[in-house]
Amino acid sequence: MDNIMLLILGMATVTYVPRLAPFFLIGSNKLPKKVGAFLKCIPVAAIGALIIPGVFNAVPDEPLAVVCGMGFAALIGIWRGGIIIPVIGSVATTYLVLLLLA
């Protein structure tokens, strides 16, 4: 058991415990209305911060490729919905733009 193995174990523990604890803390308790409303807003708040500003550097130093790729995902997403086609399409679009720019 060397240092790296200990490190992996420690990192795994401090990653896993915060992921697990809420399931016990909240469990099947009835939540106050205010807390429920707060929890309901977590996904939108989290995804907003996960996308912005990271997306602007999704393909480092290639803003045009990002705009085209995300633009494709947005158009297909608005028009038809779904996940697979917007995602694969955005990768393909970005790939084509990078090819053309290269």
């Binding site: 996308i51 990002v66 995300m70 494709f72 997403g77 917007p86 995602v87 990768v91 970005t94």
Partner: peptide, 11 residues
């Protein structure tokens, strides 16, 4: 590299 962002957007 764009996949995770277009995934979040699509969701």
């Amino acid at each position: 590299g764009i996949a995770l962002y277009s995934l979040l957007l699509a969701i």
